[in-house]
């Protein structure tokens, strides 16, 4: 298991964190290749179904990142999202998903450095927790 690498499904808001990932790339910053990016229009679009589906299909962790509070392109999408996420994270733990597998952050499109930092943190946390199987549906 020593060469095991986690897969982390990463939902990035089109208007900010996705841009930050771009910037990190253009600036040639280093971050681990474990993240698999899915672009969403806004964190307000996130549904608990997406997260469970990621685990179902083999993710070891899920990371959602969007605009800073107050900067949402749709004004308030991320305010709703953070409430949903706070409840989701607690409930997921109740249902047997380790908290270290779920991450939520605010990163603007100017924060390439921060994107790389958070990506590192997320990967570290998920690695520590090990492979996820609780919600994995064997094909």
């Amino acid at each position: 298991m020593s060469d095991w690498e986690p897969k982390i499904v990463t939902f990035l808001c089109n208007w900010c964190s996705y841009g930050a990932a771009d910037l990190a790339g253009i600036s040639r910053m280093q971050y681990p290749p474990n993240i698999r990016v899915i672009r969403i229009p806004c964190t307000g679009r996130m549904s608990p179904k997406f997260i469970l589906t990621a685990f179902r299909q083999g993710a070891d962790g899920v990371w959602v990142s969007g605009c800073h509070p107050g900067d949402c392109h749709y004004i308030e999408g991320n305010y709703y999202a953070r409430r949903k996420f706070a409840l989701f994270k607690r409930f997921a733990e109740h249902m047997g998903i380790e908290p270290d597998r779920l991450h939520f952050s605010w990163i603007s499109s100017a924060e390439g450095t921060r994107f790389a930092e958070v990506a590192n943190e997320v990967v570290r946390a998920v690695k520590k927790t090990g492979p996820a199987s609780g919600y994995l549906k064997a094909a």
Partner: peptide
């Protein structure tokens, strides 16, 4: 399309069903 949860009584399907059913009742 997409299918979020299988129809079977596979334990993961059951668990996913209950997870989402409950979460839809949050608040």
């Amino acid at each position: 399309r997409p299918q979020w949860v299988g129809k079977s009584i596979n334990p993961v399907d059951i668990r996913t069903f209950h997870f989402l059913r409950a979460f839809h009742c949050a608040g």
